[in-house]
Structure formats: C-alpha cells, structure tokens
C-alpha cells in the first residue's frame, strides 16, 4: 500500500506491505541507515525513533501505522544552517563525554536522550536524582560498551546545557 509520512521534516511516500516494520522501511526504502537493528524484539532500543513525538522501537511498528504520522530519526536530530550542521546538544555531549564507543546503540540513545533533554524531564532534580532518572528513562536502550557511566554523564551535561540556554534566553526577554 501507499504510505505517506513525514520523515525528518519532509513528506515521504513509500509503497510497502503494511506489515513491514518501520525499521526496515526506514533502512531499506528510505536508506536512513542510522536507525539500527539490535534484536528485533523491542529489547535493545537501537532502533528507537520518534513517532508523533514519542520515542518508540521502530522494530515494533508496522509501517502502515505511520501513514499520516510524523517520524524523526537520528538523521533528523541535528539542525542544518545552510551548509553547516549544528549538532543537537545530546550529540555534542555524547562525543565530548565519551558516551559513544562502538556506536551501534548510539542513535537510539541519542533519540531518547534528546527526548529527555527537550522535555526537561530532569528539571529541578538534584544531581543524584537526575542520574537515577536518566537510568530509568534510558533503561530501554542497551549498551554493551560503556557500562553506561559516560552516557549518563553526557545526558546530564546536555540537559544542563539546554537548561542554561533556555534560562539565558528567558532572562534576555525579561531584563
């Protein structure tokens, strides 16, 4: 069937069996290979994308379910300013803090971390609470390289960075 969806801000049309996994259509038909398959059973989170604003496992989404909906993948996380790519705060923090090693889980983790940071889910938490919250919120993303420590560091850092920027913008508006 013909499926129309908004992918990373652009309208896309694919012809696909309705039962195919969103993961496969993204990777094979749209060649958005940043979304990875680690298990095919919704355990590892490597295939995480955002569907209508919620992070989901794209291996557990039938592509027909995306007709008329909005999908964002890791390829859509950074902003484009002319020729220049402006990485999302979580991408920058993951690189700086050493939160990516082999990198196969990284796109999924970046998607979930971006969700945490953008929704300001760590707002008003002290550092220890924030670390515990990050661990719960990212529990659907398995990483076998890092032991998670440096990823938690990166998410905390990105959240502080984004929070700081928001506060600065707010204080500029109300001098």
């Amino acid at each position: 069937m013909k499926i129309e969806m908004n992918v990373n801000g652009a309208a896309r049309v694919v012809e696909a069996s309705p039962y195919r996994r969103l993961l496969d259509v993204l990777r094979e038909d749209l060649r958005l290979t940043g979304t990875k398959e680690g298990c095919g059973e919704g355990e590892c989170g490597a295939c995480t994308v955002s569907l209508d604003g919620e992070t989901v496992n794209s291996c557990l989404v039938a592509v027909a379910q995306c007709h008329g909906r909005t999908v964002k993948t890791v390829e859509g996380l950074a902003a484009q300013q002319g020729d220049k790519e402006i990485l999302h705060a979580v991408q920058t923090a993951l690189v700086r803090c050493g939160g990516a090693q082999c990198g196969i889980c990284t796109p999924g983790i970046a998607m979930c971390a971006a969700d945490i940071v953008e929704r300001e889910l760590l707002h008003d938490q002290d550092l220890q609470q924030a670390r515990v919250m990050v661990r719960e919120l990212l529990a659907g993303n398995i990483c076998r390289c890092t032991g998670y420590q440096l990823i938690v560091d990166a998410v905390i850092e990105a959240a502080s960075e984004v929070g700081l920027q928001r506060r600065e913008r707010a204080s500029r508006r109300t001098p």
Binding site: R27, L32, T33, T35, V74, L87, Q91, A100, T106
Partner: peptide, 23 residues
C-alpha cells in the same frame, strides 16, 4: 589528554556505516 573520538560525530549522527548499512 582526552581528545574526542575521531569517529564520534559519525556515530552520534548515524552516518557511520556498519556492514548492514553499506550500499
């Protein structure tokens, strides 16, 4: 010194090509 990984940006943007990603 902790120089950022040279493959870091490719990995956080999803551009790094693993075998199943190759054309």
């Amino acid at each position: 010194a902790s120089m950022p990984r040279v493959d870091g940006v490719a990995k956080v943007t999803g551009r790094a090509r693993y075998v199943d990603d190759l054309d």
